[in-house]
């Protein structure tokens, strides 16, 4: 990786961190857990990296590590989004139930 690339990636990193800070400003307490769960699912993005490790055939060991990473990250992504959706579905029902 060239120094220019490092600077460029660090630049992206810095902007993304500030964006992350600004995104979550005023969140009602009821949404804390779903938000945590939803962003947890996003952190499963490491799956994208795992796919390359598992499919590149650099060596048997790398393939094994990559395949394990793909399995774990897929659980994180699939489970994370489904659990978040379940929580939010309950949240909605409760709200309408309160009105009626």
């Amino acid at each position: 990786m060239s120094p220019e690339q490092i600077v460029y990636l660090t630049f992206i990193l810095m902007l993304a961190i500030f964006l992350g800070f600004e995104l979550i400003a005023k969140v009602p307490a009821t949404l804390h857990t779903p938000l945590m769960s939803g962003s947890n699912a996003i952190s499963g993005i490491t799956l994208v990296g795992a796919l390359v490790s598992a499919g590149a055939e650099h060596s048997a060991m790398a393939t094994w590590l990559g395949a394990a990473a793909v399995t774990l990250a897929t659980i994180n992504v699939v489970g994370g989004y489904l659990v978040t959706d379940r929580m939010l579905a309950m949240f909605k029902k409760k709200a309408t139930g309160g009105k009626a």
Binding site: F18, L19, G20, F21, I24, S39
Partner: peptide, 10 residues
Amino acid sequence: ALVGASGIIL
């Protein structure tokens, strides 16, 4: 970075 930063704020 988004998850890291928003996680800290949360």
